[in-house]
Design a protein around this nucleic acid. Structure first.
Lengths: 213, 213
DNA sequence: AGGGCAAACTTGACACTGTAAAGATAACAC
DNA sequence: GTGTTATCTTTACAGTGTCAAGTTTGCCCT
């Protein structure tokens, strides 16, 4: 009918997986020149196709942006997951490693982070909803964070509170520390500041007064 | 020579303070249709001038964006200041009121917040640097926050740590709770969640034995 | 095998955008 | 009054997204 559900089994006709090529070209453009460099025509040129070809794989520019955001989100999740696996395996160490992965991804791929969290609702609606196996079990960034927060959720409380506490702190710092933004300083200085800021999480969950109201 | 430093005393030639009119037109467009609706030509049309007129008052679109960001920052600061003045005057109450003003501004003017914190370095360079009396004493948002954080800075530590802890938390939550984004729910639900998340600040600075409830 | 058929692209066009150069106009200095 | 300068207009051009029509290519079915 509408979508090519054959994306992974059969091979397309002319180009051979042009959809993925366009997404990758868009990511390249994004990393090179930031948001204003992302252009349907430039993506098409980079993939070696005509300027109107992307319109058949995505629902216009918004659809391409949504697809890029999905792929960026996938890489973002992977970045946090690997950061968690190589660090301190204790619950608190794992949580901090994930947050560090959050910051690291923002420092190294600012445009992709901007893409992930800057996509507007209307752009999301333009996404082709046929992304099977995308939000799989452990690969979702929010689920990774949620599981890392679980040990610090006081019994009987809404786990989303702790999750959003951690998420807001990491997200806010990462955005403020984006290159050329409000928190100045080199990478090492930013890292040290990040650790000191994240020390606030030592007071999260079952801490000082375990049996509070 | 270059700029009309007569912005407040004499009146310009044709239009009469077109610079301010263009900035206001841009803000209106931004609030109505979001970032993609902000256009030099639409601003010019809304101000009743030719489509190329803005180029003489701003350094291209980037300059207009920077000017709008400055004005938005001014209103943002005012929003936090008034929120601080009408709330609990205790140090902790004042700090939380400011954070609530942060969130409230983001909920009511999401495009302006995006403008303030989304302006790129190159766009900032395009700003006309002749904004006298702009970063005045108490009107700077960061100074407001800094002064509100001062009572919670442990002696001998860098005050920026507490400031960035508070700033990151408020900034992160506000962005995640932007309408149609990652934190769902109505305004009242968001407010309640915000209070619970911001409870993390009870552990900032001189902790565990607070004099206030 | 061969005819149809749909999907994957191409081509051409249009409206809209930012930007630059050159011309008109009005306020001001003298 | 005369000249000058800043303000704004006009005109033009390259680049953008999007639509409508055409062209090619692989696949399916009889």
């Amino acid at each position: 009918m509408n979508t090519q559900s054959t994306a992974h089994s059969k091979k397309p006709h002319h180009h051979g997986d042009l959809r993925r090529a366009l997404v990758q070209a868009g990511i390249d453009l994004l990393e090179e020149g930031g948001l204003p460099a992302l252009t349907l025509r430039k993506c098409a040129a980079k993939a070696g196709v005509s300027h109107a070809a992307p319109a058949h794989h995505f629902n216009g520019l918004d659809g391409l942006k949504a697809a890029i955001a999905q792929e960026a989100f996938r890489r973002f999740s992977a970045s946090m997951l690997t950061a968690a696996e190589v660090g301190d395996p204790s619950p608190r160490g794992r949580l901090k490693s994930i947050c560090r992965g959050y910051l690291h991804f923002g420092q190294t791929h600012p445009a992709l982070l901007q893409m992930i969290f800057g996509v507007t609702p209307e752009e999301m609606e333009a996404a082709d909803t046929d992304t099977p196996g995308d939000h799989e079990k452990g690969t979702n960034a929010y689920q990774i964070l949620s599981e890392a927060c679980a040990p610090f959720v006081p019994a009987g409380t809404d786990p989303r509170i702790v999750e959003i506490q951690v998420w807001s702190l990491a997200h806010g710092f990462t955005l403020l520390a984006l290159p050329g933004r409000f928190i100045e300083g080199g990478v090492d200085h930013t890292d040290a500041l990040f650790d000191q800021v994240m020390a606030l999480l030592n007071h999260v969950g079952p801490t000082v007064s375990p049996a509070s109201p």
